[in-house]
Design a protein around this nucleic acid. Structure first.
Length: 235
DNA sequence: AACCCCCCCAACCGCCATCTG
DNA sequence: ACAGATGGCGGTTGGGGGGGT
């Protein structure tokens, strides 16, 4: 059995977040940091507007991580990012959070969505199984047909799937690296550590509600032009 | 213009791991 | 040591929007 729902569902709001809710949550986290997600909605409400933010802690956490975090990169994935996702997925599988740790500014949810809607199709078009990253429908070798099949494999690799060759090369490179997996784990931990440090380094310098304000982010201040243009000019 | 279909993605759900008293 | 609480993760869903008919 899993645990019970994180909070009492009665009276809690669900569905899309409003700008007001975003404002409350953002203000609270920037000013207080995150100690306990379950308390955030109540505290955020008391802190800003007396009214409670009628969301469960889990919903607040998700909204912050996937949408409000100031370090999020918005917009389409670049070719480089897509290639990186494919390469990481071939090694890590559906461990989206681990993959996201290697792509600064991207969330696990964003990567998961992008994988399911775009990259999966792209790989299929390239003749690759999105789960195993191996060619689809490649005949299995037997003693009698091995040579023919090898020719087919070569044809496939040379004529159909340059991306597959690229993947093979990156896998070879990883084998040569040997302890690369450990290195990746360490770098992943570093990224996680840096993220937590970054969270503590946020310094809101102005009024958060509807006016432009400045955030010091890893000693790189930027101006966030408020909630009026939310979702479009969010840095 | 109206309807339908498909795609995208934000948000939710359920489970597992870890923490805490 | 244990049970309940909490955080985090991956899978899934459903609503909105765009394109086609």
């Amino acid at each position: 059995m899993g645990r019970q729902p994180c909070c009492e569902k009665v009276g809690l709001k669900r569905g899309p977040w409003t700008m007001e809710e975003d404002s409350k949550l953002m203000s609270f986290i920037l000013n207080n940091g995150i100690q306990c997600w379950r308390l955030v909605p109540k505290l955020a409400g008391i802190y800003i507007h007396i009214l409670c933010l009628m969301r469960c802690g889990k919903s607040c956490r998700l909204r912050w991580i996937n949408y409000l975090r100031p370090d999020l990169k918005r917009g389409a994935f670049s070719e480089e990012e897509e290639d990186m996702i494919i390469e990481l997925h071939s090694r890590l599988g559906n461990r989206w959070s681990k993959i996201a740790a290697h792509l600064p500014g991207r969330t696990d949810n964003e990567i998961k969505n992008h994988w399911n809607t775009r990259i999966k199709k792209k790989l299929k078009l390239l003749g690759l199984d999105p789960i195993t990253h191996n060619p689809i429908n490649l005949p299995k070798s037997s003693t009698e047909t091995e040579e023919i099949n090898n020719h087919e494999k070569l044809d496939f690799q040379e004529n159909i799937s340059p991306d597959y060759q690229m993947l093979q090369k990156s896998e070879e490179a990883l084998l040569i690296c040997g302890s690369n997996q450990d290195k990746n784990d360490q770098s992943s931990s570093c990224i996680e550590m840096e993220s937590s440090i970054m969270l503590q380094n946020i310094e809101p310098l102005g009024n958060i509600s509807m006016e432009p304000f400045q955030i010091n982010w890893m000693d790189n201040p930027f101006i966030w032009d408020g909630f009026s243009t939310f979702g479009e000019s969010f840095p």
